[in-house]
Simulated scan of single mutants.
Amino acid sequence: MPDFSRFDQAAYDEQTRLHRLKLRRTRKGRLFLTSFCILVIMGALIYAFVYADSLWIYIADRYFNNRINAASAQQGGGWDNHRLNIMIIGVDQRNNEPSRSDTLMVAMLNLKDKTVQVISIPRDTRVKIEGLANPTRINHAYANGGTELARKTAGQLLGTPIHNYIETNFSGFENIIDSLGGVEVDVEKRMYYPAEDINLRKGPQRLDGHDALSYVRYRSDGKGDLPRIERQHRFLGLLAVQVLQPKTLLKLPEIAGELHSNVKTDMSTADLLVLISEFKNISPDNIRFSDIPGLPQYINGASYYVVDEEELKLYMDKILTDEIPAAAPGIVN
């Protein structure tokens, strides 16, 4: 049986007090250590937030420089490394007929100044296509060699490497416009061409995918392909204004799904993410549209758009040396 007669209550109380004091100091030490770690983490996050933009710019520049240099070397180009040239091709796919490029543009992205120069190449442009004996319309390049031959032909015409491409067909264009909820356009005149299911009234209206496609494809102006290209530039300018609005960001998941389903490209997800980040704050005023210099001509009974090669070289040299200022969306110069 325990003998409690020798139990020293005072000594026990003192020992207990010292033990509690030790625990309290340990807890305070742990609390200080935890608080210090939290402050360090918060400081690191703030530091990262403040300097992330500069870091991202550095990473993006390195990323694009490497990609552009590699692509230019492969294609034999000699242009500067702060430009990314992307071919945008709209394909006309019909039953029982070979596909042809209905719309061909080259978007030249200036990664340094955050400007975009979009150059349209009329589909009737007369060019020499590798593998074909005689000069013919540039839209035959896609029909004979797909995207790669179209890219090579466009690059040779402009005298610059085409680093990437984005391709879509008519239904893809319609679906993308529908996912945006349509685009507000003041249609400049009555457009009616039942053979292509085009039926637009004059005046301001919101065009859904089908009517937007009708607007950019209509070419019964009696002046060849140039009025249609001007409409395409105008529409893309209006589209850029809408896409850059904050409310459009809420639709990005749906738009991304449509792009994945309806667009072909050689750009990876990483490419697209870096590109979007680089140009997320671009002003529509820094997107400029133009077409290559030349004139419509009949040659051996066929209608062509004949390029003024000397003027084209001068124009491309101005782009290279940044002599062409940005213009308002949809303005053709």
Rank of each mutant, 00 (worst) to 15 (best):
Y192C: 09
E174M: 15
D113N: 10
R219Q: 02
F235S: 10
P135L: 00
H140I: 08
E167Y: 05
G224W: 12
D197P: 00
T136A: 06
I229T: 10
T147W: 05
G224T: 10
L180R: 07
Y193L: 14
S214L: 06
A141Y: 02
Y218D: 03
G155E: 00
S179I: 05
E148G: 05
I198C: 11
S120E: 06
R231L: 10
L180Q: 08
V106T: 03
T125K: 03
R137A: 13
G237K: 02
E230W: 01
S120Y: 05
P227G: 08
R123M: 04
S171V: 15
H163F: 09
N139I: 05
T153W: 01
L207W: 11
R190Q: 14
V187I: 15
L226Q: 08
S220N: 14
K112Y: 00
E148S: 10
G224I: 12
M108S: 14
I177S: 11
E184T: 15
L111W: 01
I138V: 12
P227D: 09
L213M: 09
T147F: 08
D197Y: 11
R126E: 05
K223Y: 13
R151P: 02
A150T: 13
N175R: 15
A107Y: 01
I166D: 09
A154P: 02
A143M: 03
K128M: 14
R123P: 10
P135Q: 14
S220A: 15
F235W: 12
A212K: 07
M108L: 00
Y192T: 11
P194K: 04
A195D: 13
D211A: 13
H140V: 03
I138P: 03
G131N: 12
R219G: 05
A150F: 01
I121S: 02
R126D: 10
D225R: 07
V116F: 00
D225Y: 11
M108N: 14
A212C: 06
R228I: 05
G209I: 05
Y218P: 05
T125G: 03
G172H: 09
P161W: 09
A143T: 02
G181P: 10
L213D: 06
N144K: 14
G145T: 11
